[in-house]
Write a protein that binds this DNA or RNA. Structure first.
Lengths: 197, 197, 197, 197
DNA sequence: GGCTAAACGAGACGGTACGTCGCGTCTTGAG
DNA sequence: CTCAAGACGCGACGTACCGTCTCGTTTAGCC
């Protein structure tokens, strides 16, 4: 039975992990993504740069870990209808996107897509989870008989979540109206699927 | 009659402007957004760095000018129906987004939203144009009698274009299916508006 | 009879020459040699840079012309003795060197010896004049019978003027004591020549 | 007991100091003072520019440290006579000045006198050492009884070393005759002091 | 309790790009 | 042909950040 790591030497200090994540989030909020430097994070956290690079290979990984921390993304509880389920999905996504300022999201996306490895990991986790949630919701509708045939999940994915991302990332729209937008999109997509499908 | 500028001293050489824009676009295509350097642009363009910084305050402004340059974004010719008009809008946007590699789009968006001034200019030109196009199309539908009341243009904007941006920027989806996506979204939005409106 | 120059077109404005020299001297006094820029001279003089480069090939030539303006350096009137003549020579040189701040002299010397052409011109005028003055004074002493044989003028040159330059340029010594230094050096050199020669 | 510095963090690498000084001296010899660039020094030394600017505030400080480095300037061994001692002083100074090409000396002097701080440091080290050497030699002569009273050391300083600097810096004279010049100046100054003192 | 090995804060290191500044040249329109 | 204004190519400057690498010290687990 292989132990994952030989536990010799001084163990990592978990307070350092929290200090890094905390300092990163603080500085992102104070100065924005573009002005975030590793030295500033180390200084604010009261630690050395080596402690950061012992944990993360690059600055981007560090930010990724500090911001995209708790990606649960479970399918929502069955609401009894496709429309209700889609609304719930929109709501969860909107809430998640609203936690970070838009410049952080853009910076992160740019770095993610500028680095092959990070990009693959992003698609393999974040996107895959979303796809799975949408798949699950559509399956439920099939079982209920709301849908006759299984629609293309990728298309539905874009139709449902695209407007939310666009509102937050591109339009920098009012967050108070996000709930309305989510409901209207969910209704529209549900109607479209049940009518044509 | 206010002259915009006193034409004193040697005037700016418009060939330099074109050389900068051309070199920027070439190098973006060849090396990607992250690897673009101002020195490389100057060298490729056969000019000095000073000529660049005389025109743009930062590297980001230079890229902005070189890429978001000929955003025409005229409303499409009247197709006779709301659905047809929306399809045409989707098609134009999809084509524009497809010309640039995705990492350029992400880098540009990140820089735009990382700089107040650039962000304002982006909203004031690109977004405003899109909004105007959508407004125009909705007005036509009102005149035709397809719509009873004017819908919220911002919501329609997100519903229509969000999925396309999402497909390209987040999903890094197949460009071959963009046309299908555009048609399906246009149909869905048109149905939604005519049914509920 | 060949005119030295074809007098066609607009003649040079002599006020421009004076403005250049004046601005150069002002800025040298205000900011020092190292901080003097051609743009600043043009701006202060209220003229264009082209007017400067039409007159001088380089910045150094401009400064040279503005500072080393009236190099007369005639041999002093015959005082009746070698010692008196040498004193007079020291006095004149000391007065000339005292007009410019030491940083200007050093800057000028550095530039002069960094540029072959300028260096040759400097040696050909300034140094040659000094040498001629010393030669003349020594000839007089020979005729008077103070000296039996003609000493090596180059060595005398260094012995006599070296201390003056050193005092001003290297020691940044008190200008009030320059007269004393000159007298003591003149006496010493005269004694040395009349005793050993 | 005051520790000069808290020895925290990685200490400076002394090999880097030597590499900087070595590269600087090499490049000064190869290309001359005016063509020396910080980038070239860093490249030649195999180090980064930051390592240079961590040690020196400006390029001038770097050159100063690399050239005015091992100014030992000990008083010469007692030769038994004032004249012998003065000859020895001249010889040492002439040898030191002959090692560097004249354009380096001029450049260095220009930079030293163009920067307050550097000028003060130059006076406080180099000049002070020379003065001390001369003082020591004069004290010996007093003890021997060659001199009745202590002469003005500053004047003697200029009288003795001025001609040598002038020969090298201004006249760009033949180095082969420097020894002769030194001897003649030493004799002249010694005679002058013993006669008048 | 002592030994070993890794983690720690601090900060120096090589490298790369940035945005600025100065030089000497060139290009306007006016005189 | 000259002038004032100012853009141009070039190249060096000094700064900032990245990810790596020593330092000397601290902290755990195993003997």
């Amino acid at each position: 039975m292989p132990e994952p790591k030989q536990a010799v030497g001084r163990p990592r200090d978990s307070r350092v992990d929290h200090a890094i994540a905390g300092a990163t989030r603080e500085l992102l909020a104070e100065r924005g993504y573009a002005k975030l430097t590793v030295d500033a994070v180390a200084s604010r956290a009261g630690i050395g740069k080596a402690a950061i690079y012992r944990r993360f290979a690059t600055k981007q990984e560090m930010i990724f870990a500090a911001t995209v921390h708790d990606m649960e993304e479970q399918p929502p509880p069955d609401s009894g209808s496709l429309r209700g389920d889609l609304e719930a999905v929109c709501e969860v996504i909107a809430k998640q996107l609203s936690t970070a300022p838009p410049d952080v999201l853009h910076g992160l996306l740019a770095d993610i897509h500028g680095d092959k490895a990070l990009g693959a990991r992003f698609s393999g986790t974040f996107i895959e989870r979303e796809r799975f949630v949408i798949d699950t919701v559509l399956e439920r509708a099939l079982e209920r008989g709301e849908l006759a045939a299984k629609p293309d999940a990728a298309i539905v994915h874009a139709q449902l979540l695209g407007p939310i991302f666009y509102w937050i990332l591109i339009l920098i729209g009012d967050h108070g109206r996000l709930a309305d937008l989510g409901r209207s999109v969910a209704a529209m997509v549900a109607d479209s699927l049940t009518a044509s499908g």
